[in-house]
Design a binder for these strands. Sequence first.
DNA 1: CATCGATGCGTACACTCGTACACATGGAAT
DNA 2: ATTCCATGTGTACGAGTGTACGCATCGATG
Lengths: 204, 204
Amino acid sequence: MPRRYDPERRQRIIDAAIRVVADKGIGGLSHRSVAAEADVPLGSTTYHFKTLDELMVAALRQANEGFAKVLTESGLLEGAEDDLAGDLARVMGEWLGGDRAGVELEYELYLAALRRSALRPVAAEWTEETAERLARRTDPVTARALLALMDGICLQVLLTGAEYDEEYAREVLGRVIPRPARPSPETTPAPVRPPGPSHVRFPL
Amino acid sequence: MPRRYDPERRQRIIDAAIRVVADKGIGGLSHRSVAAEADVPLGSTTYHFKTLDELMVAALRQANEGFAKVLTESGLLEGAEDDLAGDLARVMGEWLGGDRAGVELEYELYLAALRRSALRPVAAEWTEETAERLARRTDPVTARALLALMDGICLQVLLTGAEYDEEYAREVLGRVIPRPARPSPETTPAPVRPPGPSHVRFPL
DNA sequence: CATCGATGCGTACACTCGTACACATGGAAT
DNA sequence: ATTCCATGTGTACGAGTGTACGCATCGATG
């Protein structure tokens, strides 16, 4: 009986759970499948995580760091440039274009909160935090809206199998961001920017 | 042996499947659970739907009509008024405020397409069609963006347990819609009210 | 009437699941 | 040194699963 008193046992189980969800989906998540993937006996997974919900909470917490990391490393949050929409569209592109399975995994766990109330606080926490970080380059309301729109765009891509269109994303994200009020008090509400949808390609 | 040769057997099975998903989630969907709910023998469900994917496709197709119906009945599509954002926000409010379980059901089936490629064409079809209908009151690009944003907003509400804020929705939806540059005098830039991220309630 | 295919019905098999529990082990506290 | 308890291990049980298959029943076709 090797490997007893493994101090990282718990972490290894979480990692294994993430791998399981990544390639078999949430439906394939079970104490047994995780135990096999982590190469630990069944009793070990049930000991550390009494219920699958507990395990999913831990997995979601860890998986959530995926996009957060991309966001951090993009330097987008420190940047002070004007083109926030373009930056976000680019980051989304990198995220979606990179480890697609990882993206699906994150969304699958995130969306699981729809039915599993145990996951809701974690999902809420993540939304809260990300919106807050985003708000550094805009205002809280806009940050939340950008987050919602990004979610919607990603879902359209993932659910329908469409191609991600960065130009399109940049365009519509830009519309959500209020233009910095010009000093001239005259340029009333007009969110300006001629919509010119003519040159925007559609994801099919 | 009553009820043989039931011509509506298939439809009744689909209805039962929807009820099962509605109150036990997709995880609770099985040939047996559906058979019990529809009050038909097991063999009947397996006969009409060889796989659960087939059954889910049928269920999703039918469930998708929920929001579509709300959209139609709202008269939003025929209306020619200016406040499309407000109309959409109102409709969303009605939808979310009404049969909440029904909404969760629709999203659950819709989101299931993330992992089940069999559902993707159906999801894509629905998106396509709804965007098209929406485009009657704006342009195709905007329609798609509105759809994405609405999905994102709904998900934030459903996943985090937050309250739906119609005013907020109206505001940000409005930003996505390009204003036909018209010199209307007093339309204010509408200062924003945050959705109050600080007091998001958790269920439970 | 005879046949045949679509549909319905019941049952059985092999499998996976969560859960429970009894037991082993070793570090920490006393 | 002894005790205690968190942790790890193995096994078993009952419930639920998809699937397959044989038979029953009807409608239509010839």
